[in-house]
């Protein structure tokens, strides 16, 4: 598979009154054509910041200190806002934002909002845009007869589907879905995830799904990246991450989910709290909470290395002590 998107050593800090919040630190990963990639981690781990940087949508106090984002032959970070708006957003990368139910404008009909998005980015007739809108709504499972409704006439699940339709409006190569089902009830969540999975497969979309919920990633993505405190700690096939997680944080995170079947076991929790990113711990940012930490962990940040084929882990101990595997 060809690589579609390549992020190298991305470093993005947020300037605040108290100093720099080191939200994304030396993050590297790539997305292949047709792949669905999940980025999982707890609140504040930097997963949404990474997504925003991909479209250069980061807030004004964010500083990108280093790194490159290559989209095909485009160098996203060196493009100006106008170029990004014309060439990248919607057409090549589009986004289903967090809390998508509040992202629709309440005073326009759903159909008009999607048509507007198409007309703003493509040189097509209004009629063509309307036809495409109807087709899109049908694809996400909304009866086109409801297209003329206002957002408040839609249920939460339908609004989310409409946002997905809108994200697909200009045939993007990559769709970023940021917590696409977080505010939804389980049954509606299952319905929306099914729509996402089906579309991804049928349209051959490349997708990045961001979630705090590992189980959502497990069900939707081919590959999973686990982030902790602004770093990627593990990156491998989704099946592998659940079968043989290697980073102590990944192991802890997976172990913290209660099971729905089988014997009831006491859950092991990760002790302590995630660090304050104004002043993250030196060395490995997970070391104060890590059961396997040694001296080296508090001195040196572990690089993300390929431990097995296609399995990248950032942990000193994994390399030194195979028994931790």
């Amino acid at each position: 598979m060809t690589t579609l998107l390549e992020v190298r050593d991305l470093k993005m800090y947020y300037g605040t009154m108290k100093g720099d919040v080191k939200a994304v630190d030396d993050v590297s990963f790539s997305l292949r054509m047709g792949e669905s990639l999940g980025i999982a981690g707890e609140s504040g781990c930097g997963k949404t910041s990474v997504a925003l940087a991909l479209m250069k949508l980061q807030p004004s106090n964010a500083k990108i200190l280093s790194g490159t984002i290559k989209l095909g032959d485009m160098d996203v970070l060196n493009m100006d806002d106008d170029e990004i708006r014309r060439e990248v957003r919607w057409k090549r990368i589009s986004m289903v934002p967090q809390a998508a139910m509040n992202a629709l404008n309440p005073v326009f009909t759903v159909k008009d909002q999607i048509i507007e998005a198409i007309l703003a980015h493509e040189d097509v007739s209004e009629r063509e845009a309307e036809e495409r809108t109807v087709k899109l709504l049908r694809m996400v499972g909304i009866d086109p007869s409801r297209a003329g409704n206002y957002p408040h006439e839609f249920s939460g699940g339908m609004k989310q589907r409409a946002m997905i339709a809108m994200a697909l409006a200009c045939n993007p190569e990559i769709v970023i879905a940021d917590e696409p089902t977080t505010a939804l009830d389980v049954i509606v969540q299952a319905q929306v995830l099914k729509v996402i999975k089906t579309l991804q497969r049928e349209l051959g979309l490349s997708m990045i799904l961001i979630s705090h919920d590992l189980s959502v990633v497990a069900e939707t993505c081919d590959r999973t990246i686990i982030m902790y405190a602004g770093n990627i700690v593990e990156n491998t096939a989704t099946v592998e991450i659940f079968r043989h997680p290697l980073h102590p944080y990944s192991i802890g995170l997976i172990g913290a989910f209660p099971k729905l079947t089988g014997e009831k076991k006491r859950l092991e929790s990760i002790t302590g709290n995630p660090p304050n990113l104004l002043d993250p711990p030196p060395g490995c940012r997970f070391h104060p909470r890590c059961p396997h930490a040694r001296d080296v962990c508090s001195r040196l940040a572990p690089p993300l290395l390929e431990v097995h084929e296609n399995h990248l882990v950032a942990c000193h101990m994994v390399n030194r002590h195979p028994e931790y595997r």
Partner: peptide, 18 residues
Amino acid sequence: ALMAAVPVPDAERKRGDL
């Protein structure tokens, strides 16, 4: 239906239709 809809952190579980 609720049980069928809950996503589980297990990439190998195949979900049936809701």
